[in-house]
């Protein structure tokens, strides 16, 4: 099998006395959609943050395409092609939608003089197409902070696509989105995966969404990796059911 896009081996992270992740190991295979579930407080977001370099890990190793990245900083990891979206949607709220997308161009090869160049027309076109892709084309000149929460989520997703990442880590992409929009979002996530070839790694609480989306799933509980397998296997795993229902 090819090199995993993300390979986490025996990673532990604690905050003071709270052990958020304990000897967690997992893999994200290239080109696939991988899911991560677990009850609240089980350490999903901590694992995300560790992977993208938001905080140092206590022990273990994290590899991106075979390269050790656990000592790199957030920006360096982002420039390698690993991007994350936030659970609390984060956009540049005083800029308009087109500007939000434009500034999200990949910065991997940006040189010093690139800072002072303008955006060529192709990039503006591409930005508008991405806004069309997420259904925000008409609102592209509005200040993004004035959009609804769901629209901001879609904008954040379009920003991530503009960055052309190898892998995209999505922290609860459907949280707070109106149920009728969720189907559209699932469809767009799948298209991003198939058409743009972006590997996805998704934290999700909505079981219907994640079962639909993911090809392989991991379940965290109390900071430990509880189970992994196909959506069907996870659904029928007694340990996963117990974790969610609170049996210990």
């Amino acid at each position: 099998m090819s090199t995993p896009t993300i390979e986490v081996s025996n990673v532990s992270k604690s905050f003071g006395g709270v052990v958020a992740n304990k000897m967690v190991s997992m893999k994200v295979e290239p080109g696939k959609i991988t899911g991560l579930i677990g009850p609240n407080g089980s350490g999903k977001t901590t694992l995300f943050n560790s992977i993208v370099g938001y905080h140092p890990i206590d022990e273990g190793s994290i590899k991106f395409q075979g390269k050790e990245i656990s000592k790199l900083r957030v920006q360096q990891i982002a420039r390698l092609g690993m991007l994350r979206t936030f659970q609390q949607t984060r956009i540049y709220s005083k800029m308009n939608c087109v500007e939000n997308i434009l500034i999200s161009v990949p910065h991997r090869t940006a040189t010093f003089s690139d800072m002072f160049r303008k955006y060529p027309a192709e990039l503006t076109d591409k930005a508008e197409h991405l806004l069309e892709f997420v259904g925000l084309y008409q609102k592209r000149h509005l200040i993004s902070g004035d959009l609804s929460f769901g629209q901001q989520k879609l904008l954040e997703f379009a920003m991530a696509l503009m960055n052309e990442p190898t892998v995209l880590l999505l922290d609860e992409p459907t949280a707070g989105i109106n149920p009728t929009l969720i189907n559209g979002l699932i469809d767009r996530l799948k298209r991003a995966n198939e058409e743009f070839g972006i590997t996805l790694f998704v934290i999700e609480h909505n079981m219907r969404v994640i079962m639909n989306l993911a090809e392989h799933m991991y379940c965290l509980a109390h900071g430990e990796m509880l189970a992994n397998g196909t959506p069907d296997e996870i659904q029928n795993d007694q340990r996963v059911i117990d974790a969610y229902l609170g049996a210990h």
Binding site: Q75, L83, F86, R90, Y92, M95, I103, H107
Partner: peptide, 18 residues
């Protein structure tokens, strides 16, 4: 645009690789 992005959300700007 980059310094506007830093103004609006510097952590996000870092996460996007700026």
């Amino acid at each position: 645009l980059a310094i506007n992005a830093i103004r609006d959300d510097e952590e996000k700007a870092e996460a996007m690789g700026i």
